[in-house]
Every structure is written in C-alpha cells, then in structure tokens.
Amino acid sequence: MKDYLVKALAYGGYVRAYAINATAVVAEAQRRHDTWNTASAALGRSLVGGLLLGATLKGDDKMTVKIQGDGPAGAIIVDSNGKGDIKGYIQNPHVSLPLNDKGKIDVRGAVGTNGVFTVIKDLGLKEPFSGQTPIVSGELGDDFTYYLAVSEQIPSAVGLSVLVDTDDSIKTAGGFMLQVMPGASDEVIDALEERLKHLPNVSSLLEEGKTPEDILEIIFDGEAIMILEDSPVQFNCECSKEKFATAIITLGTSEIQAMIDEDHGAEAVCSFCGEKYYFDEPELEALIQEITGEKE
C-alpha cells in the first residue's frame, strides 16, 4: 500500500480530520540514518507528526519541527511542506532502550520529558512564524497536541504510531490529527474523546491492511465523513553538491586551503538524508578561485 494522507470533515464540518499511512517514508528514514528500534520509533513519530502538520500548509510553504528533549536521542528535526515532502534526522540514531512498563517501545525514555518543542513556519512572508511549547510527555503525540492547543489555539488530538520489526526495520507507520472547529458542541467533543480512548494503535490497524479512510471510519464510528482529498507523501531531500559547494565557499579561502593541504579533499554529509558529497583538490581549488575571482 502506497503512502498517502487523507483530509476530511466530520460532524457537519465542525471537525477537521487527517489520517496518514507513512510506512515507506519512515522506512526510508530508518534505512538512511541506520536508526535502532527506540530511535526509529521516535524519529518515525516525528516524521508522521511533521506530515500531518504539513498538510495544513499550502504548496510551497515550509515548516520545521524541532524536538529538543533531555533524553539520549538528542534533538529531532523534521522539515515538511504543503506538497507532502518531508525529511528529518535524529541526533543520536543508535538508541535502543528496554520496553516500557506497558511492554511498548520507550519513546518517552529516548526523547526525555524536559525540553522544548518548536515549530517554525515559512509562509513566504517577510518573517517566519515561530511557536514554542515545553515538552509535556515525550511520547510525541501529546506534544504535537499540546503545541496545537497552546501555540495555535486549535483544540486537537494527534495520534502517532510506528511499528518497528525485530531487525529495527519499519513494519508500519501512520497517524491521525483531529481539529475541533469553533462552534462545535460539547457532545461532539465528548463523543470524540470517548472514541479515542478505545482506538487501537494506528500502526496495528495499518498492519491489518486498513487504509487512512478506514482509520477515519473507525474514529468516527458511523458518523458521516466528507473526504476532501487524498495526496501522496514522500521522503524527499533537495540537497545537492552545488548547495554544499555554496556552503563551503562561505568558509573562506584559508579554511578551504586547509582542507586541500591537510585532507587533500573534503566530504560533506547531509544531516537530513545521509547523502555524501566528495570534493577533490581541483574542485576545492576551483571554489577558492570563485572567491578570489582568479582564473588559472
């Protein structure tokens, strides 16, 4: 089943709903960053959350989510846009903790319970919008929910779920986001809260072959749902050798000359996707010439 996200309305438009299968996205990130099981779940949940938030953007608008907790995973950074693209990384990919007291992967133990959850939106305006809330759970679904409630003033429920196989690969990954619009009745909110208490993990539903549409049907349990659209989501990093060359130029001539003299070249690695770019001596010399304006 392909990765995609569904946007819908329920309860006569008073609830906006999103559901997603992001298994291939999270599997690609796991492969690129060689994450171990607990880190896989933490990065995977962050990527799913980033895609759900990204679904609220228009086309080229961009968003960065930074989760900086006090756990061994270190910082988790994900970048998404309104076209379903996402990339991300975790500072310490090799985190594997014992299961928690519920027998589940201990994402909270990896992320930590103290720290900062930051969202930066680039909406093509002069200044990007930035919102910040404390980490309240470390399980991440609750942290996305808290951010939306406090920073964006939207009462929401966010569920993020990753099923990691015994070899650290990703079996399934997905999630949902429900947003209650102004004017929704207390009955609607109470009914949703009750349903969510009994909702199985999204990753388990995906493993059973359920689609994002099926997941919404389960959440709304007989209520009329209006599907607005479905759209593909994908791991996509737009790094290139040219972009890294531009970055190397900013280091200045003496720094580049040191790379030539000491290392006889340079290797640049993209944090987001792990892609490596090698610059040999002639290429570095050409960058120096670009700075100085000299030609051989």
Rank of each mutant, 00 (worst) to 15 (best):
M1I: 08
Y4G: 03
L5I: 14
A8E: 09
L9K: 13
G12M: 08
Y18E: 01
E28Y: 08
Q30R: 12
D34Y: 11
A42F: 10
L47C: 12
L57N: 11
L57A: 11
G59P: 12
K62F: 05
T64N: 05
T64G: 03
I67H: 07
Q68Y: 12
D70H: 15
P72K: 12
I76Y: 12
I77A: 04
V78W: 00
V78Y: 01
N81V: 00
D85N: 15
K87H: 14
Q91P: 05
K102W: 11
D106G: 15
V107T: 09
G115N: 06
V116A: 06
F117Q: 00
T118A: 03
L123S: 02
K126T: 09
V136H: 01
G138F: 08
E139K: 14
I154N: 15
I154D: 13
P155S: 03
V158Y: 07
L160V: 04
L160N: 06
V162C: 05
F176N: 10
L178F: 07
E187H: 07
I189A: 06
L192M: 10
K197S: 08
N201E: 08
E208Q: 15
G209P: 00
K210R: 13
D214R: 11
D214S: 11
I218D: 09
F220M: 07
D221P: 09
L228M: 15
V233L: 14
N236C: 13
E242R: 07
A247R: 06
I248K: 06
L251K: 12
E255M: 08
D261S: 02
A268E: 15
V269Y: 09
V269D: 06
Y277D: 06
P282F: 01
A286W: 05
A286C: 02
I291R: 09
E294N: 07
K295A: 04
